[in-house]
Design a protein around this nucleic acid. Structure first.
Length: 321
DNA sequence: TGTATTTGACCCTA
DNA sequence: TAGGGTCAAATACA
């Protein structure tokens, strides 16, 4: 574990160094890019070590008792880096999502705190829109529609071009190059938009500064039933919910989604064999496999979860409802 | 054959 | 008018 902490320390130092040199690097994008790569690489290395350790710890019941203390250290370090990085705002907000339970991050309406509950856009209004005749009005409404933005780490393995599943099935309907952004933005709508008049949409874009992080913006509310979209497994856990619940349920270690996964992986694993895994998909513990699945199983239907070598298949995955 | 993705064009807002 | 968001035809795939 010490090795992990050292790696994170090193990454933090690199990040700080990068920050200090920002003025000099402004005119040297290539160099800046290399520095960023170095920082992300260092964190990635730390994360991988953490995975290995977590896996080892799955076999021991000591994990849960040890991890919080150790993770506090990494958590602090990670936070330190996050605050000093270009992602300080967004990631930090995410990290503190537990301060505003029920949501991750609300964009556009501001984070007043007095209305953390997602404002319910009148479904009647949305559904009643005649697309052909009132596109402008629809647009206007969408502009007022609350957005929910979360940062999602790219899968370490498997399909890293896509963010992890979030429990819903999405159909891509567009992609655009965004001015000033290195990576295109992809537009998705709920697969069951027609069937259920589901107006949920999401946008996915890699962060310029850190391609390992996806910025996922959710808009609209799912009016379809999640069960209809989610495959049998854990992916039925909406990632947002996952993150929120994790931050709520674990007052010890959680930080970024990456950390969430790494940390809770092992911890939860100790309990993953039980039936508890199943029950409260939307309200209680999530088994480690579920989490790993939700976070990393990017290729949805492919079924070839490359994380399986890290997280052994879970018998309970199938059922649970 | 049905469904998903790609991508150029179009529409709307600021 | 530029840029973001969406449409829809073409294409790919199972």
């Amino acid at each position: 574990m010490e090795e992990v902490i050292n790696s994170i320390r090193r990454a933090s130092r690199l990040a700080q160094s990068l920050e200090q040199n920002l003025p000099n690097l402004l005119n040297q994008p290539t160099l800046m890019s290399l520095s960023i790569d170095e920082v992300t690489g260092a964190f990635t290395a730390a994360k991988e070590k953490l995975f290995l350790i977590s896996r080892q710890n799955q076999q021991t019941s000591e994990f849960e008792t040890q991890q919080p203390l150790q993770m506090d250290a990494t958590h602090d370090l990670m936070q330190e880096w996050l605050r000093s990085s270009t992602h300080a705002l967004t990631m930090d907000q995410l990290l503190h999502a537990h301060a505003a339970p029920r949501t991750t991050l609300h964009i556009g309406e501001g984070r007043d705190g007095d209305d953390c509950e997602r404002t319910r856009v009148s479904e009647g209004e949305v559904q009643g829109i005649n697309p052909s005749s009132s596109r402008a009005r629809r647009r206007s409404k969408e502009a007022n529609q609350e957005k929910e933005k979360i940062m999602v780490p790219a899968p370490e393995f498997g399909n890293t071009e896509m963010p992890p599943e979030d429990g819903f099935t999405w159909r891509k309907y567009g992609q655009k190059e965004i001015l000033g952004s290195k990576y295109p933005r992809s537009y998705y709508r709920c697969t069951h938009q027609k069937l259920y008049e589901c107006q949920a949409k999401k946008q996915v874009q890699r962060l310029d500064g850190n391609p390992n992080i996806f910025e996922v913006t959710y808009r609209g509310k799912h009016t379809c039933h999640m069960s209809s979209t989610a495959p049998s497994s854990s992916s039925s856990v909406p990632l947002q919910q996952l993150l929120v619940d994790i931050t709520q349920n674990t007052n010890t270690t959680t930080s970024s989604p990456m950390m969430n996964l790494s940390l809770h992986t092992g911890g939860a694993a100790t309990t993953s064999g039980n039936a508890g895994a199943s029950t409260s998909r939307f309200g209680g513990d999530y088994p480690v496999v579920d989490m790993a699945d939700a976070m990393f199983n990017s290729g949805s239907s492919s079924g070839n979860n490359s994380m399986e070598f890290l997280f052994s298949p879970h018998e309970d995955k199938s059922d649970q409802n």
